[in-house]
Simulated assay, not measured.
Amino acid sequence: MTNREIRFAIVGCGLMGERHAQILQATPGARVTCIFDQDLERARKVAGDLPVCKDYEEVLRREDVDAVVLALPSFLHVPYGIEAARHGKHVVTEKPIALDVDSGRNLIDTCRAAHVLCAVISQNRFADGNTALKRALVTGDFGKPVLVRGSVKWFRHDPYYTESDWRGRISGEGGGVLMNQATHTLDLLLWMFGYPNAVCGLTANTRPVLETEDVGVALFRFPGDIIGTFEATTSAYPGFAERVEVHGQQASCIVEKGEIIYWEHSAKLPKPNPPEFTPPTPNLEPRYVLFQRQYRNIIAAIQGEEELLVKPEEALAVVAVTRAIYENQAETIPRPLTLTEPG
């Protein structure tokens, strides 16, 4: 249709909002035209020379805004996204798309009815190791997986939660580590292996400052009888790199922090290669590269040149599975176990 410049408004000026502003300002085809945060002083610090809007309504009235980037507390993604769509603005939201399936579906349906895109930031899908493993699974080079594992063992100090008015709170996040910090790794499992046929889990809250879980595990049965496990915590000192492990009768692969650190194939096939991505813009910080890869796709999708690589329905599936973990706790089906010492 057109490759005109796409004009973005940054909504929310915490750490992620500032990051999105920097990435978009460095990305060809994008321009940040205004900034908004309810804390106007914080907005001014991020904005620099850019206009600062006094309220969200001003953002939505601006004719030089094609899309809003919602870098907001999780519970605000849906209401802010729906309002943007009703004003004809494309919606780019941080994860999770919603706190529950019904509200997330409402956002997707509203965007579709308004003929605007709904994109959810899922930058880990664009990491070299993850895309290479996905390619090996799709082509069949990997063979049949039988056992997969996702692992997120991070550490967050108490002030990470206590200095926020929404983190670690049911009303703010809709859950804890599974809904927030670990959601990208769960997204990778669903992207690679599909929507599970069965799920159960266990969660625990080990920290008094939280209303939500800081430890969670889940067991999945994916299509094709692939068994999966998922473990997540923000209480594993000092913190470890997130992992995806895939094992089968022909091959095994371990991806750590987006890079393949182990690959072994019975037929001696070489480690798979990722697709060729457009090189990052000069001087872009390495931690922003994956975001820019996704933004290039989002911009092209708004321009009508490409399909979105991360569909909002896929992001909603992650929420649905997370809710299923919460609702299908293994301990809700008591199974008495009697242990006796060996005679």
Rank of each mutant, 00 (worst) to 15 (best):
N3P: 03
R4A: 13
V11K: 01
G14E: 00
L15Y: 09
H20Q: 13
A26R: 11
V32L: 09
T33W: 07
D37I: 10
D37E: 12
Q38Y: 12
D39P: 04
E41M: 03
R42T: 03
A43N: 00
R44H: 03
K45G: 05
E58W: 01
E63V: 06
D66H: 15
V68W: 04
L72Q: 08
L72D: 03
S74H: 10
L76T: 06
G81W: 08
R86Q: 11
H87N: 10
G88H: 02
V92I: 15
V92C: 12
P96I: 03
I97Q: 02
I97V: 03
V101H: 10
V101L: 10
V101K: 11
R105M: 07
R105D: 08
N106T: 05
I108V: 12
D109G: 02
R112E: 13
A113W: 05
V116H: 12
C118N: 15
V120E: 09
S122A: 13
S122N: 12
R125N: 13
A127Q: 15
T131P: 01
L133V: 02
V138T: 07
G140N: 01
G140A: 00
F142G: 07
F142H: 04
V152D: 01
W154G: 08
R156E: 12
H157N: 05
H157S: 08
P159G: 05
T162M: 05
S164C: 06
D165R: 09
R169T: 15
E173A: 13
G174C: 04
G175P: 06
L178K: 07
N180T: 13
Q181S: 12
T183F: 06
V199E: 10
G201M: 03
T203L: 14
N205V: 03
R207T: 02
R207F: 02
L210A: 01
L210V: 09
T212L: 08
L219C: 08
F222G: 01
I227G: 00
F230T: 01
E231G: 00
A232K: 09
T234S: 14
A236D: 15
E245R: 14
V246G: 01
V246R: 11
G248E: 12
Q250K: 15
C253I: 05
I254T: 14
E256P: 07
K257H: 15
E259N: 11
W263T: 00
E264L: 00
E264H: 08
H265Y: 05
K268N: 14
K268H: 14
K268M: 10
K268D: 14
K268W: 07
N273A: 14
E276K: 13
P280L: 08
N283F: 08
L284R: 04
L284N: 01
F291L: 11
I302N: 09
L308R: 07
E313A: 00
E314K: 09
E314N: 06
T322D: 01
I325E: 03
Y326D: 04
Y326C: 02
Y326E: 09
I333N: 08
E341F: 15
P342G: 10
